[in-house]
Amino acid sequence: MNLTLKVWRQKDASSSGRFVEYEARNIIEEMSFLEMLDVVNEELVAKGEDPIAFDHDCREGICGTCGIVIDGSPHGPWDATTTCQLHMRAFKSGDVITIEPWRAKAFPVIRDLIVDRSAFDRIIQAGGFISVSTGGAPDGNAIPVSKDDADMAMDAAQCIGCGACVAACKNASAMLFVSAKVSHLGLLPQGEVEQDRRVLNMVRAMDAEGFGNCTNIGSCEAVCPKEISVDFIGRMNRDYRRALLRNE
């Protein structure tokens, strides 16, 4: 198939960007979306033009590195799919595809389709952990965890930190990301101990990074490649209020 791509090109964080049109020729449906971009890049290099920069690594939907807004939708048209797992059978010859980076104040563009997501790391550093050091842990079976809690913790823990939730949100809110970590750890008895500190510190860090508020639209859940539920946002709000009452 042959496609027309409108791709966001931006030299660096301080330059302004613009859309540039490219033709993608002889694309086959077995290709992943990123392999399609590889083909376009090979042609650009052959012509002596700068290839399109985009983040990617594992190409199997788990590392969370890739992320492109495709025709207005983070990670493109398929449900529960990262950009690297989106395949070209989702498109047909003649399609015009708009390709942009995540757009959020807290995720500045570094180059072309690459953004800086280090804000997510700083939120985790603020409290997204259980404060245990290596050594001295009790036997793994010493603390029973109900299967339901363990399963729900795992539902939340599946977050890959790609940032699609922020990109989809009209407020560029990071609530889905933050609530997934708060819920994962808070649902387990090991993490319950410091849950108040955790939720207060993580929410404070999230606000400081410039992410917006949640207004209960749910577009984050709709684009999440791991189908993290917005219920976790409700859960975090409850944890947060409880922590405020108990601590202030």
Binding site: I130, V132, P144, V145, A153, M154, A157, H184
Partner: peptide, 8 residues
């Protein structure tokens, strides 16, 4: 102890 949600 770190909170890895192993299957139960």
């Amino acid at each position: 102890a770190q909170g890895v949600p192993f299957a139960r």
